[in-house]
């Protein structure tokens, strides 16, 4: 147990701009567990989209800004597996490619203290029951970067199993990518859409009311498809479920 910890929230550019509820929910969960949450206002974006599209040189100032913003904190938490994956596995590479070894060192140090939300809750705080109530049927898409880049394993599922009122329905072929892949969704739109169609089929097969995940980007993709097909299934971020105490969200 490590309660009363001070945590810097890296809300991510996507949640900040399009999904502020995810940020608010992350704050609510952490504060409920006794954390002191701070929001460093100089934060912007991890640069993942730039790096993954090949624009590492353009990503350099973003890495620099991220490191400068967060290096003074003992713990950084973000509600996104892929953004944390980028911080952990890409920032030092971007710095090294640009020949800035000092920045690479600092980036590695910050990365070692940066956590995805479920990792932070389970590994650092030692909490598996966050005291949430969410009376809905939910299926969980584990998202590739949480699963394979970070290796969060079944931590999100453990957290969900302890939410009161929640019925967790197993997602078939859960570990298969939803087809988002950042700019892949635009550059290879046909393949992306074919993958999305299969993911949506699997989500619908569960009969769940809600499809949850720990990445707003994947949820935006899956949710965009579910909405286009007027399926009535909602996409909800893991943080929003964990923040719910009265069935709202």
């Amino acid at each position: 147990m490590n309660r009363g910890s001070s945590v810097a929230l890296f809300v991510t550019c996507l949640a900040d701009t399009l999904f502020p509820d995810v940020g608010r929910a992350t704050v609510a969960v952490l504060e409920r567990l006794g954390c002191q949450v701070v929001f460093p206002p100089s934060q912007t974006c991890c640069g993942q989209a730039h790096v993954n599209t090949g624009y590492q040189r353009d990503a350099l100032p973003l890495v620099r800004n991220f490191v400068a913003t967060f290096e003074r904190y003992d713990a950084v938490v973000a509600p996104s597996g892929s953004c944390v994956g980028s911080v952990r596995h890409q920032h030092a590479i971007v710095a090294e490619r640009a020949g800035d070894n000092a920045l690479a060192e600092r980036a590695r140090a910050v990365a070692s203290r940066t956590f995805e939300l479920s990792e932070y809750l389970v590994d650092r705080l030692g909490v598996t029951d966050v005291g949430a109530t969410y009376p809905h049927t939910v299926t969980y898409h584990p998202t590739c970067h949480s699963l394979r880049m970070l290796g969060v394993g079944d931590k999100p599922l453990t957290l969900l199993r302890n939410v009161r009122g929640l019925t967790l329905l197993a997602l078939p072929a859960a570990e298969e990518c939803c087809g988002f892949g950042g700019t892949f969704a635009m550059k290879n739109v046909d393949t992306s859409t074919a993958m999305l169609a299969d993911k949506i089929g699997d989500v619908l097969a569960t009969g769940a009311e809600v499809c949850a995940a720990s990445d707003s980007s994947c949820l935006m993709h899956i949710g965009g498809g579910l909405s286009r097909l007027r399926t009535g299934v909602r996409t909800v971020h893991l943080a929003e479920i964990l923040a719910a105490t009265d069935g709202a969200a």
């Binding site: 993954n52 970067h145 892949g181 892949f184 993958m195």
Partner: peptide, 8 residues
């Protein structure tokens, strides 16, 4: 670019 970088 023919990959989502899913890591499988």
């Amino acid at each position: 670019y023919a990959s989502t970088l899913c890591g499988a």
